[in-house]
Design a protein around this nucleic acid. Structure first.
Lengths: 203, 203
DNA sequence: TTTTTTTGTGAATCGCCATTCACTTCTTGG
DNA sequence: CCAAGAAGTGAATGGCGATTCACAAAAAAA
C-alpha cells in the first residue's frame, strides 16, 4: 500500500540534493551570489526551479548550507594543521598559508565567505564562520603564549586581527576585476605580517 | 526668456541636496543599506520619492556619494595625523586609534564602509576607499622603514593587512547584535597588534 | 496677471526573482 | 497493466522597491 522509496530512488534523490549544492557552490564560486539565482542553480543542476524546493525550503537555506559546509571543510583542514606537529609558529604559518592559498584558488567563493553581502540568514552563517576561524587562531595563540613562543597578548583581538589581516590582503586580489600573480609573494607577505604581529621569534 | 534661478532658489536646492545626503547617511548609519530605501530617504529628507531623482540619477549614485564623502572625511583626518609630529610609531598608533574610535561611534556606518554588500557601483566605491586607506598606511610604513623605526617589509601587503586587521576586529562588535563595552581595551589591543606587526620597537 | 519653465508629488509602472501550484511524468505496490 | 502516491515541471503569482510619469504647485519672465 504505502509508497516506499526503493534504494535506487533514495540514491537518486540524495544525488540530486548533492548536485544542487554543488551547482550552487560552483555558481557562487564563479560569479558571486548575484549570479546564483534559483533558476540558474536549477538549470545547472539539471532540474527545474520548482524541484529545488523539494530539497530546500528556501533559497537562503540552500546557501546557508553551501556556506556552512564549505566553512566546515575549511575549518577541518585548519584543525588538522593545528593538531599537527612542529612548533606553534610553524603551524600558524601553515594555517595562514593554507587558507590563503585556497582562497586564491576560488576567488569568488572566498569572497562570498568573507565579504559579499546577502541574506540576513546567510550573513549570520558567515559571521559564525568567521568566529569559528577566529577560534582556530585563538587556540594557536593560547598554545604559543603558553609555550613561550609568543609574548603575552590579547587572544581574542589577536585572532580577529589575523583573520582580518589576511582576509583583507586577499580580498583586493580576490575582488572581481584584478589579476593575481605573485601569489607566492602575497602569501609570504601575509604570513610574515601575521608572525610579526603575534610576536613569533623567527621572522 | 530663459529661466534663471534666484539666489534663494539656488540655496534651497543646494540645501535639499544636502538634506538628502544627510538623511541617507543617517539611515545607513543606523540601519545599514537595507533600511535606506529611496522612499525612506525621501521622507526623512522631507521630500517625495520622485524628487530624489532631480538630485541624483539613481540610488547607487546617491549612495556612492554618501560613501565617498564619508571616506574623504575620514581620510582627511588620517592625513592630518600622518603629517603631524612625533615618531612614525606614535602616528601609526594615533591613526589606528582614531579610526577605530570613530568606527565604534557609528557602528553601522563603519560597517557599511567596510563590509556591507550592496550595488556593484557602491562596492566599487568601497573598494576604492579601502585602497585609499591603504595608501595612508603605506606612507607611514615607508617613512617608518626609512627612518629605521620599522624593519624592512612588504609595504603593500602590510598596509592592506593593517586595514584588514582593525577592520575585522571592529566588525565583530560593529555587527548588529552585539554590545560593545571595553572599547578602550579593544582599541588598545588592535593598536598593539598592528604595532607588533610592523615591527615597531616600543610595544 | 498671464505665460513659461522648473520643481515637487505620489500613484502607477517595471523589472526582478523567489516561491507556488495545477499539471505531467515517473515509481511503487498490487 | 492499473491505481495511488511521489517527484518534477515551468508558467503564473506575488512582493518588493527603484524608477517613471502625468499632473500640480511654485517661481521667473513678460
Amino acid at each position: 500500500m504505502s509508497y516506499k522509496r526503493s534504494f535506487l530512488m533514495e540514491e537518486r534523490l540524495a544525488d540530486n540534493r548533492q548536485r544542487i549544492l554543488k551547482a550552487a557552490r560552483a555558481l557562487v564560486a564563479e560569479g558571486g551570489f548575484n549570479s546564483a539565482s534559483i533558476a540558474a542553480v536549477a538549470s545547472s543542476a539539471g532540474l527545474s526551479a520548482g524541484a529545488i524546493y523539494r530539497y530546500f525550503p528556501s533559497k537562503s537555506a540552500l546557501f546557508v548550507e553551501v556556506l556552512t559546509s564549505a566553512i566546515d571543510h575549511e575549518i577541518a583542514i585548519l584543525q588538522d594543521i593545528v593538531q599537527g606537529e612542529g612548533d606553534v609558529t610553524a603551524r600558524l604559518r601553515a594555517c595562514v598559508e593554507s587558507f590563503a592559498n585556497r582562497a586564491l584558488e576560488g576567488p569568488y567563493l572566498a569572497y562570498a565567505f568573507i565579504a559579499e553581502p546577502a541574506d540576513e540568514d546567510v550573513d549570520e552563517a558567515r559571521l559564525l564562520g568567521r568566529i569559528r576561524f577566529g577560534e582556530v587562531f585563538k587556540s594557536l595563540l593560547v598554545e604559543g603564549i603558553d609555550k613561550g613562543e609568543f609574548p603575552a597578548q590579547s587572544i581574542d583581538i589577536g585572532a580577529a586581527c589575523i583573520v582580518g589581516a589576511f582576509t583583507e590582503a586577499l580580498i583586493r586580489p580576490i575582488t572581481p576585476r584584478s589579476k593575481r600573480d605573485a601569489r607566492a609573494e602575497l602569501v609570504e607577505g601575509i604570513v610574515a605580517f601575521c608572525l610579526r604581529a603575534v610576536g613569533a621569534k623567527v621572522s
